[in-house]
Amino acid sequence: MQKTHTTIDQLIHERKSVRKYKENVVIPHEDLQTLLQKAITAPSSSNMQPWRFIVIEDHQVKKELRPIANNQEQVETSSAIIAVLGDLEMYKNTEKIYNTNFEKGYMSREIANFMIESSLSLYGNLPEEVMKNIVHFDAGLISMQIMLLAKDMGYDTVPMGGFDKVKFAEKFNLPQNEIPILLIAIGEAAAPAYGSSRLPLEQIVRYI
């Protein structure tokens, strides 16, 4: 597909939730790889990067996923589904993350050691419900980044939180520490998205 590069202001306003997709459009693997490689630059809590992904391209698997996702048409007709998962044990990568930060010169050995010690102590002892809140928050950050980057590459998307997460976890044999958070359909629009209004700013912002 022809790639376009636009300003962030254009991307924000042109990105819409598309639910009608051209069927049988294949997105090259290098495009999906590039998309996710850029997306993982998103910020996360203590740089723990708790996001994990399953990219579903196989038509039969998408067809089987459709009833799990409330029979949403785009699950089957889009080019791919990017399932955004959250790893509740993301802190187990703490040493790898901060040792790499040190090796790349991003921080001193002293700071890296401090971050390793404090992160393991903090995240390793948090209740599961708190960990779920953290990974959901971070998944939101990277999901928006995925959708804006996809638009910049010429693809359309729609985020879907309405799916049976228990059945999804069973279908894809997710380990206990990984929870499904969001499905993002990606492909080429077959019909324009609906416009959507926004509440007036004065109703939602308070300056103090």
Rank of each mutant, 00 (worst) to 15 (best):
W51L: 00
R52C: 06
R52S: 07
R52P: 11
F53T: 08
I54V: 12
I54T: 05
V55P: 11
V55F: 07
V55L: 12
V55M: 08
I56H: 03
I56V: 15
E57Q: 15
D58M: 01
D58G: 00
D58W: 02
H59P: 03
Q60P: 01
V61R: 12
V61L: 13
K62V: 04
K62H: 04
K63Q: 14
K63I: 08
L65M: 14
R66A: 06
P67N: 04
A69W: 07
A69Q: 06
A69C: 13
N70K: 14
N70S: 13
N70C: 11
Q72S: 06
E73D: 10
E73N: 08
E73T: 07
Q74H: 10
Q74K: 12
V75T: 13
S78I: 02
S78M: 01
S79F: 08
A80M: 11
A80N: 13
I81Y: 08
I81N: 11
I81E: 04
I82T: 07
I82F: 05
A83Y: 05
A83R: 00
A83L: 04
A83I: 04
V84I: 15
G86N: 10
G86Y: 09
G86K: 11
L88P: 14
M90N: 15
K92V: 06
K92A: 09
N93F: 05
T94P: 03
K96A: 13
K96W: 04
K96D: 01
K96H: 09
I97F: 02
I97W: 03
I97R: 05
Y98N: 03
Y98H: 03
N99Y: 01
T100C: 02
N101S: 15
F102H: 15
E103V: 05
E103R: 12
E103Y: 08
G105R: 12
M107W: 09
S108N: 07
S108L: 07
S108Q: 10
R109F: 10
I111P: 01
I111V: 13
A112Y: 10
A112P: 14
A112I: 12
N113V: 03
F114W: 04
M115Q: 15
M115W: 10
I116T: 02
I116Y: 04
E117R: 05
E117N: 10
E117P: 00
E117S: 10
E117M: 02
S118Y: 02
S118A: 06
S118T: 13
S119K: 01
S119R: 00
L120W: 00
Y123T: 05
Y123A: 02
G124W: 12
G124P: 12
G124C: 07
L126P: 03
P127F: 00
P127V: 01
E129K: 14
V130C: 01
N133R: 11
V135M: 05
V135N: 06
H136P: 00
F137L: 12
F137W: 11
D138S: 05
D138I: 04
A139V: 05
G140Y: 09
L141R: 11
S143Q: 08
S143D: 05
M144G: 12
M144L: 14
I146L: 00
I146P: 01
M147C: 06
L148I: 15
K151C: 03
G154P: 11
G154L: 11
G154K: 09
T157M: 07
V158G: 01
V158P: 03
P159T: 14
P159C: 08
M160L: 14
G161V: 05
G162D: 10
F168S: 09
A169H: 10
E170V: 06
E170F: 03
E170N: 12
K171T: 09
K171H: 13
K171W: 02
N173D: 15
